[in-house]
């Protein structure tokens, strides 16, 4: 029993260790103060980079203008992301059932990952019309392949011994997939999803840049046109925050589920 307690105690310690939270905050504060001082001392013009305080003030002042675009971008990213995760995993699961399909599809998926979706957006506007909600499709096409690729990688690299174990206990093909192959790939699935966070954000903002009219990407350009550099930078920070929040949420879920990694 003593050992058990020791382990739970260690886990609790890891969770509550304040250094993990304080250290990044300190770095953030140093960057903030450093930029503030540096930009003022060297008299950097606002169109190169406004001081952090001015960015903060400008953004808060214009927040009522930014808010609808912020919500729109969050909506696009979240919907796209939520469709891309199951799509990527299901596709990978289907591909992994047959060696020949893995061999055939892997280059295609890699090709899809590499192609920057921003190049396709003008064409897609042409095919699909200009409804801003269609930007979800850009996010899906951008995020699905990377999730699929990582998941597939996990699905096809299962130790032979684990499969032999499944065989020795008479597990069906489906049971083997659920209990062995999928669980074995779970860390890689999460890597894929985390990369998907980044790709979704990139996809949504590039769609804004090209299609215009709505979204944080569009708002950045609008602010720039009227020389509102503080607000432009504010939007960039907000976009980064969306990405970071998604990433943090996924990491937190991963830590709760993938307990067997040191």
């Amino acid at each position: 029993m003593a050992k058990n307690e020791a382990i739970t105690q260690r886990k609790k310690k890891e969770k509550k260790d304040p250094v993990n939270i304080i250290a990044p905050l300190v770095v953030l504060a140093i960057i903030y103060v450093g930029l503030e001082i540096g930009l003022r001392v060297f008299d950097v013009p606002a169109y190169v980079m406004p001081t952090p305080t001015n960015i903060l003030i400008g953004t808060i002042k214009s927040f009522d203008i930014i808010l609808p675009d912020l919500l729109f971008t969050i909506k696009i990213i979240c919907i796209g992301f939520c469709i891309a995760i199951p799509a990527g995993i299901v596709l990978a699961a289907l591909f992994s059932q047959f060696d020949i399909i893995v061999k055939a599809m892997q280059p295609v998926v890699i090709w899809l990952v590499i192609t920057p979706m921003i190049t396709l957006i003008p064409l897609m506007t042409l095919w699909l019309g200009t409804d801003p909600n269609l930007r979800v499709i850009v996010v899906i096409i951008q995020a699905t392949p990377i999730i699929c690729l990582n998941t597939l990688n996990g699905f096809i690299h299962v130790e032979q011994e684990k499969l032999e174990f499944a065989k020795s206990i008479g597990a069906s093909k489906f049971e083997t997939f659920i209990h062995i192959t999928f669980m074995n790939a779970l860390p890689q699935v999460f890597t894929g999803i985390k990369l998907g966070c980044i790709f979704s954000t990139i996809g949504a903002v590039s769609a804004d840049f090209v299609s215009r009219g709505m979204g944080l990407g569009d708002r950045i350009i609008k602010f720039l046109k009227y020389s509102n550099f503080e607000q432009s930078y504010g939007c960039i920070v907000l976009i980064a925050l969306i990405g970071i929040s998604l990433y943090t949420i996924v990491s937190a879920i991963e830590k709760r589920i993938v307990l067997w990694k040191k």
Binding site: E161, K162, E164, F165, S168, I169, G170, H179, I180, M183, N184, L186, V258, L259, W260
Partner: peptide, 15 residues
């Protein structure tokens, strides 16, 4: 069900 198999390097499921 009539058999139990012990593998050389334990082969436990880490998850």
């Amino acid at each position: 069900k009539k058999f139990g198999f012990v593998f050389q390097n334990n082969n436990l499921l880490p998850w």
